[in-house]
Amino acid sequence: MRVSKILNNNVVISHNELNQQVIVMGNGLAFQKKVGDEIDKSKIKKTFVLQTKGISDKLAKVLMNTSEIYLNIAAQFYEYAQSKLSYKLDEYLYIALTDHISFAVSRYKKGVELKNPLSWEIRKYYKLEFQLALKCLEVIEKKTGVRLGEDEAASIALHLVNSQLSGQNVTNAVQITEMVDTILSIVKFHFKVELDEESVNYERFLTHLRFFAIRFIRNEKLEDTADPFLYNQIKETYTESYQCTEKIATYLKNNFDLDLTKDEEIYLTVHINRVTDRQQKETSS
């Protein structure tokens, strides 16, 4: 294994026996080394594979002003989170988390703590990601001696959510969270009920909304293949839920210039009926 690029004294880019680009870490690994030199395998403490073009260049820029300890934390958490999540994480997460954790620890040491305005929503809508992020706080504390607050866990959870978009901007995850939150509020206001957040129907509805929002961010359009008979049947059978769907459609059109297909109207209406039916019955009984 030879040096392809030196990121700093302890981190180099190389290629493994499968010719995959890898990041190799170890104390003094690049000391007095140059590109093409053999890497001392006895010094290697951690290796991870990169499959996305350009990631190593961006990591190099981050590590110019950041200790590799934060890359180590990010890599450890990346592997742990990937083992727990059903979706594939984007490798840009290595960079985003390295930079974020470094900055968060630096702010903490200066006595500056930032509140995450979406912390409550993130805990509620992205429960698994938030629980994983709490584990990340434990790793940070173990490696740095700094215990960050749960607002930072919420921010790390957003990075996980955003990672499935193959994006490089947490603004995407914020927009998804706000869209989901507003749609849920429309449903609650329309039916004048509180939704049972522990119910299976709520989880299904929430999952549908999240991935609907993700499709929007990705600008993925669904073909309108709805059966006209089914569409009209849904409208007539679930009149109240369909009226709620129309309100959601108006919100999406006015705020995002997004037109719902008839397929999406059907899915939304059915999900809304499922998630509100029991609460309506309990309220009226």
Rank of each mutant, 00 (worst) to 15 (best):
S42M: 05
I73D: 05
S56Y: 08
T66D: 04
T47D: 02
K41D: 04
L59N: 08
G36W: 13
K34Q: 15
K58M: 09
Q76V: 03
D57Y: 10
K41P: 03
I73A: 06
S67W: 04
L71F: 11
V35E: 15
E38D: 14
I44S: 01
V49I: 15
A30F: 04
M64Y: 12
K53D: 11
L63W: 04
K34R: 15
Y70H: 09
K33M: 00
L71T: 08
T47W: 02
F31I: 12
A60W: 02
Y70I: 01
V49Y: 09
A75N: 07
V62L: 07
K45G: 00
D57N: 12
T47A: 02
A60P: 00
D37F: 03
D40M: 01
I39T: 10
G54R: 12
I39S: 05
S56N: 11
A60I: 03
M64L: 15
G28H: 11
G28S: 08
T66F: 02
K41W: 00
N65K: 13
T52I: 05
Y70L: 03
K33S: 06
T66V: 15
A30S: 14
F31S: 10
I39K: 04
K41Q: 14
D37E: 12
T52N: 10
G54Q: 12
N72T: 15
S56A: 14
V62N: 08
